[in-house]
Amino acid sequence: MAIKDLPVEECYIPGCAACPGCPATMALRVVYKALGRNTVKIIPACCTAVIESLHPHTSFDIPTMNIAFEAAAAGASGVEAGFRMQGKTDITVVAWAGDGGTYDIGIQALSGALERNTNFIYICYNNEIYSNTGIQRSGATPYGAWTTTTVTGKTEFRKEMGEIIQAHHIPYAAQTCIAYPEDLFKKLQKAKSIHGPKYVEIMAPCPPGWRFPMEKTVEMGTMAVETGAWALYEVENDKVTFNGRSKLILEGKIERKPIEDWIKYQGRFRHLFKPKKDIKRIKAIEDHIDQMWERYRKCYQ
């Protein structure tokens, strides 16, 4: 699939409240293109709740329901059950939450919805912080990263949401990145065609949160995949396939780039380079990623 093949129709209207260079709106446009107009979206408290703009107007040309932080998946379950009772089975129900609403606050509702076999798509756009409330640490924040609540760098490693989701043995789960819109589009179309709970996670580098210039959003996404900090894969009925560059890294056809290439451009890791290079902590990040890939190779090859 090439970029030319993506549909022209736009369900996202310009003039919203997103920061310039926002990865969430970038992903939303592709999501809307993939799912079409016959979609209902549930959003908890996250950046998107602000992006959709103030009361009498909204920037989304698709029915959207706002709900409490922890209730995205529960709300989607209710909407889906309502449609099923009315016999409307052709409508795609999507829960769209940030990493705070997925990793930390929304995890029990999500786990419940997956376990109940709700027919919906859960999309998590992961920018590794609570950026809406002003850059606090979340369960997805990587080791060593600065946030307003971890001023000297986070001391814990992030949790592997992909593996938690896989433990539910749902029909479809995938990880993708905003820098690869074709990959994102393909995965969402596949998710739409499958019945049952689906989970898609999108890596979304946040310019104000990660402290990098706003024009570098796509570059940061590409680098995240090339350095191996993020993997593109999909899981269909417990069968894991890696896609794109992550496949080449997994098979050892290309070396993954050193993590330093990615983190040195981000202000949130600046304290690891200035005033003195903190080799110990950079090595800890590198080792963690090596361990992750070791685990991937062991499980999926």
Binding site: I13, A17, H57, T58, S59
Partner: peptide
């Protein structure tokens, strides 16, 4: 809320 171009 209703969709509108330039909501902000």
């Amino acid at each position: 809320s209703y969709p509108k171009k330039g909501a902000m």
